[in-house]
Amino acid sequence: MTADVSTIADDRMVEAGFLKKVLTRPEFGSIIGAVAVFAFFSIVTENFFSVNAISAYLNPAATLGIMSVAVALLMIGGEFDLSAGALIGGLGITMAILTTSADLPVWLAMLLSLVLAISVGLFNGIMVIKTKLPSFIVTLGTFFILQGAGLGFVRLITGQTTIYLSEELATSNVAKLIFASTPIGGIRIPVVFWIAITALATFLLLRSRYGNWIFSVGGNAASARAVGVPVNRVKIALFINVSVSAWLVAMFNTFRFESAQIGTGVGSEFEFIIAAVIGGCLLTGGYGSAIGASIGALIFEMVRQGLAFARWEADWFKLFLGVMLLLAALLNQWVRSRARRAMS
């Protein structure tokens, strides 16, 4: 009887074509976009694929990509974080001040900075869940608090806006050696983290139960709750994940530049969101991709560097960005509705 049923089922099941599977992946548009951008700059500039050029866009794409992947996960979970950019600057400067003004050992300063990161993520998450306010508003508040408090305290303590690491920290410390290393050619360590994080996030999203939970809390939180998904915990974890990623990026920046500057990262919160959207995230939640967000970040930096290589004004970058964003959003919508019609 059971065997009977399953053979009927198999007969009736039409294997979805490979092409359709590719077309309906959320990152599909971003792959096309990346190829197009790469081809374009390979034609208009010379040696866009030289090692120098590649590291010129891979290195910044790595830190942007690490953030975009975290923001993409949060967006799939149905929330935004506008405080992520300002947090990067705040965490870097916290670490730097603790090693200089407070004279703490570097590992302790890093740890305290990490604790601050987790607290901010926790704060964002709990505020969003308890107040039921849109995360857009809550994290906009956090953004201003971080920016204001950062400037205020740093000026109060040091009277400066840039904190330089000590000689020892800037040259020979283990942390410096790890966080500012350049393992392959001109390729810096963040690139390694970026690739690993993207792979991990993709596995998490598509093959672990936590991935199922993330899609469900963004797609329909009430339904998710009704079948036993711990909706609040998932959302809070996603906020914390964004802040911890901001901490990682802050450490990369601070050790690389041997200093931390207040204001670093402010404004980049929108770049994270744009990269995630180019990578296929829906602004309404419940849909998106980690690989897509990484490709979005890559497109971003290829354009930024490509314009520099072509010796065009950097002004064009914003124009390009706006067009990219709109195209990506339209493509997402189009591919999704087309795939739906094809399936039904």
Binding site: N212, W213, S216, G219, S223, A224, G228, G286, Y287
Partner: peptide
């Protein structure tokens, strides 16, 4: 429980919905 509003996530695959919360 089968809820009156069904408790499904529209953007997720049938098999993911089926096992959602009890993967």
């Amino acid at each position: 429980t089968v809820y009156q509003d069904l408790a499904m996530v529209p953007l997720m695959a049938v098999w993911r919905n089926f096992f959602l919360g009890s993967e």
